[in-house]
Design a protein around this nucleic acid. Sequence first.
DNA 1: TCGCTCATGTAATGGGTTACATGATTCA
DNA 2: TGAATCATGTAACCCATTACATGAGCGA
Lengths: 187, 187
Amino acid sequence: MLKYALLGFLNYRSMSGYDLERYINASTGNFWHAKLSQIYMALKGMEGEGLVESHIEPGEGRPDRRVYDITGAGRAALTDWLSTPITSLEPEKNTLLLKLFFARQTGKDAILTQLRLQRDLHRKQLERYTGESAQAIQRAVESNPAIADETILWEATRRYGVLYEEMILHWLDETIHTVDSSFPDGE
Amino acid sequence: MLKYALLGFLNYRSMSGYDLERYINASTGNFWHAKLSQIYMALKGMEGEGLVESHIEPGEGRPDRRVYDITGAGRAALTDWLSTPITSLEPEKNTLLLKLFFARQTGKDAILTQLRLQRDLHRKQLERYTGESAQAIQRAVESNPAIADETILWEATRRYGVLYEEMILHWLDETIHTVDSSFPDGE
DNA sequence: TCGCTCATGTAATGGGTTACATGATTCA
DNA sequence: TGAATCATGTAACCCATTACATGAGCGA
């Protein structure tokens, strides 16, 4: 899957692994991320499959860079992936829900501490979506009005983040209240 | 992490790997799941760590079963894990958002097909949460009123599922409308 | 008779993280 | 002087999936 994220970015312009890491973690970071080591390995594999090509750009006063270009086969693979719809829901893994499911085996206080801490984390995340993320998209449109189309979809992914965080905050408030009023004090 | 899910179930009663698979995928399946092969390997590793013990129960007319019991060390590890709060948000991976982010490189129709298909999938998932899941918890309380406490937390995880699906359906409707009205027809 | 459930496991492979290794330049 | 940024890569390890292998009993 990372493969297609890399192809998606390389379809805009040629980049090094280092560049790709910055792009991927800055723009799709909230729903798709990768470490540098994984990106380097993925690019090597993709070059073997003929999806990308690379050449060395000598760096003056800084390290040499290996710059990757998408190939025709790479573009075809990307288009193919983009036009194939997802036909089943991806199975989730949610550590918080797992802990909560078994949490009666600890005390009320531990549960409430856990949930309140989550509330802090998600409040901050919501602020990031309504602040920085919104501004970044705003700046992208202003600096290049030709990609307004593109940014409508970027904005949709940001909007997902906002609704998701609002939903979790609502659920956390609800659950904190339920736990607080259903379980006896001082365990 | 699967380790703690297994300990959580074994803390209720002794079970085989086969039993654990049915429990985990039936009750926590919407936020934590595992394949049999992984469970067998995990149990073996946990026995090496002293978190569980096993013995063979001969099966009359059916295969022998290896039944696992949680040990004192296993209970300690579970309690420890349950009382340790999560201090940072887990990074998400969401294939739909990744496809949507790059989707302008395909046509409007492909995007709308994708989103409408998601809407069908999530409608069905919401029905499962409000139907089967709710009934399963209901039945659990009725058959054993002593675990009403426990089921308050199970209900909280189900409630998360309901709110999550409602949020996604709302977002999908919104996004379908935006794409439909912003992009030109017939690409 | 065909497929399902019960029941346990191993082996190969894939996806991803952490740690290791190197080294110049820039800025506080 | 020490930390951060730029820049690339390898190796060990962990988590998880898929495929392989076996075999009895039961119901349509």
